[in-house]
């Protein structure tokens, strides 16, 4: 286990370094520098004379060699300083701390929702496999996996406005300040993301339960005369749900990407909306560090999922 952990950790760290290089290349090298983008030198609208540009570059450190800029960026991150928003001057760390609770709450509720909906449906489908109910459920699940979550979000907003005179609040309200207001903000995006995820969870549960349903130990339990309900709960689900829960971790990574578009659909002020806003304003420091945050989170989640697999399944750790 220790050896597996060490190699896996080394590769995760290599990936993290790779992430920073890729982000830096995309932000600084491909388009010219950020100032060129917002000024008329590139595609932007701001009229700056060459002298002004030069001064602005110097003040932002953009006139230094690339490796100095890259090193400086890494040092700043190591010190916990993520820089400031180019347009608002707000420290990016504050921006992240302010908005992250909303996005994490959405992701968390979406995952719990996917368990509540997906696991019972998947188990039912597996237990009654190839019967009418199962076929119907599988049809619905296949359809649901093709529905874009941001469209689902837009539809929910539309239904809310047209039929319930409700619209998603556009301000940040934390759970610990006013839980009613907070739920109003996060519940819509959580449902939009959670429904698609439920379909995936249900499919996973179904195949996982099916695999175990005909195992020897289940047959033994049956021949002992145990009731079907006890067999399912104690001997099948307990085993079948482990991989489902772990895979939800992976889905959490996918949610990070999906939540950007869903937050936009609802206008919920989470991290995703901040990223979209920064993209449209070309607020490069915000983009750079938010994308880094997403990459790091995704890598850490994948690492933890791998670890939990290795912990659960000895074949991986010695493989």
């Amino acid at each position: 286990m220790v050896r597996y952990l060490a190699t896996r950790l080394a590769s995760a760290i290599a990936t993290l370094v790779g992430i920073t290089i890729l982000i830096f290349l995309a932000m600084r090298v491909l388009p010219g520098d950020p100032l060129a983008q917002i000024s008329t030198e590139g595609q932007g609208q701001y009229r700056l004379s060459p002298a002004e540009l030069q001064r602005a570059r110097a003040s932002l450190g953009l006139d230094q060699p690339l490796y100095v800029q890259y090193g400086g960026w890494l040092l700043d991150i190591a010190r916990g300083d993520l820089g400031r928003s180019f347009w608002r001057g707000e420290p990016i760390r504050d921006l992240i701390l302010r908005r992250a609770p909303i996005t994490s709450e959405i992701a968390l509720i979406a995952i719990v929702l996917s368990w509540i909906i997906g696991i019972p449906i998947g188990s039912y489908s597996a237990i009654h496999h190839n019967r009418k109910g199962d076929l119907l459920i599988r049809g619905i699940l296949t359809f649901l996996t093709a529905v874009p979550s941001f469209w689902l979000g837009l539809t929910l907003v539309l239904i809310g406005i047209l039929y319930f005179n409700w619209r998603p609040p556009l301000t940040i309200i934390y759970f610990w300040d006013d839980w009613r207001g907070n739920i109003q903000i996060v519940i819509g995006p959580a449902i939009a993301l959670g429904l698609g995820l439920s379909a995936i969870t249900a499919r996973m549960t179904r195949s996982s339960v099916l695999e175990i349903l005909y195992d020897d130990h289940v047959r033994t339990a049956r021949s002992k005369g145990l009731g079907e309900r006890i067999i399912i709960i104690r001997h099948v689900l307990r085993l079948a749900l482990l991989p489902v829960i772990t895979l939800s971790g992976l889905a959490l990574g996918g949610l990070l990407g999906g939540s950007v578009a869903v937050e936009r659909a609802f206008g919920v002020p989470g991290l995703g909306l901040a990223l979209v806003q920064a993209l449209n304003e070309r607020d490069w420091m915000v983009i750079q560090n938010l994308v880094l945050l997403y990459g790091v989170l995704y890598t850490v989640i994948n690492f933890l999922v791998d670890m939990s697999y290795a912990w659960l399944d000895p074949r991986i750790r010695y493989g």
């Binding site: 990936t15 993290l16 790779g18 992430i19 890729l22 982000i23 290349l25 995309a26 932000m27 090298v29 491909l30 388009p31 595609q43 990574g253 996918g254 990070l256 990407g257 999906g258 950007v260 578009a261 990223l275 993209l279 983009i287 994308v291 997403y294 990459g295 995704y298 890598t299 994948n302």
Partner: peptide, 16 residues
């Protein structure tokens, strides 16, 4: 190491 959508966004910033 990036969610698909985030990677595409990053590349789009770079490429315009």
């Amino acid at each position: 190491a990036f969610p698909t959508l985030i990677l595409a966004m990053l590349l789009l910033i770079g490429l315009g």
